[in-house]
Amino acid sequence: MDIDLITNVLYAMIRTGTPLLIVALGEMVCEKSGVLNLGQEGMMLMGAVIGFIATLLSGNVWLGFICAMLAGVLMSQLFAVIALGLSANQVATGLALTIFGTGLSAFIGSDYVGKPIDGLGVIAIPVLSDIPIIGKMLFAQDLIVYFSFGLFAAVYWFFRSSRTGLVVKAVGENPHAANAIGLPVMRTRYLAVAFGGAMAGLAGGYLSLAYTPLWAENMTAGRGWIALALVVFATWRAERVLLGAYLFGLASILHLVAQGLGFAVSPNLLAMLPYIATILVLVMLSRNSGRSKLYTPASLGKPFHASS
């Protein structure tokens, strides 16, 4: 491997990891508040299709991203009304949201298949992007990638140092106690779900507007599910979500690069690499189950009603 190739692999690692990172951070905030939303795939697809249509019609990619996020929020609030407002089973509601989003996005997008758009361009930061090896990976990306760096920092700070972050955690740990001391349990959960939806929508928009600027049915190809698994394996810690997302990105790029270089390893084995590597590393990191439990939201997936 020469320097150029390493530079490009690292660059691709960030790009591949970015949609996963954005969804997973959104879902992490949502789960920290005690709500398990399995509808990521559906929200991503809705974000992807709405973002694509908005961009195609308006010619403005930023309007596309805003619409993608709004679509994600709308979908997530549909989930919230049923799962939180009506205290329905969160797992079932989330699954239904994925099925619904997959179908609805295909329906809405059927007239937009095969239409090309320009997509989001890359903004290379002068000087910094010329640093060997890591320059391209960190400083020659598009704005959504830069945003995802900021998003990670914000979520990390939010749970580590902010008062609101503490409120979200309290609501996710013990909603009854939180309610008793006067914290707005339901409002917190609605907002956390909305944030998760906005991030899923944004990640979907990233796929259809920047990563592969096109709309095709089911184009997320399971990334929402991978992000969900990442949150669990990362034991609800932002820095491990980041690690997991990029590790997954790296391994999925390596399995393609290795084939191109002519490694005589079965591509089927290589294709498993991203999953195995990510699970292995994150499981090893969280092998201390006592400590890991500390980070797991205790009331995850349990409905809450103030009177009960």
Binding site: V9, A12, L256
Partner: peptide, 27 residues
């Protein structure tokens, strides 16, 4: 002829990744 197997009929992201990986290698 450089061949990359992506183990999928349809995954736009992966297909683009494969294309980019090959272009990086001079294809």
């Amino acid at each position: 002829l450089k061949i990359i197997w992506v183990n999928s009929w349809f995954d736009p992201g992966k297909e683009a990744d494969a294309a980019n990986a090959m272009i990086d290698q001079g294809v």
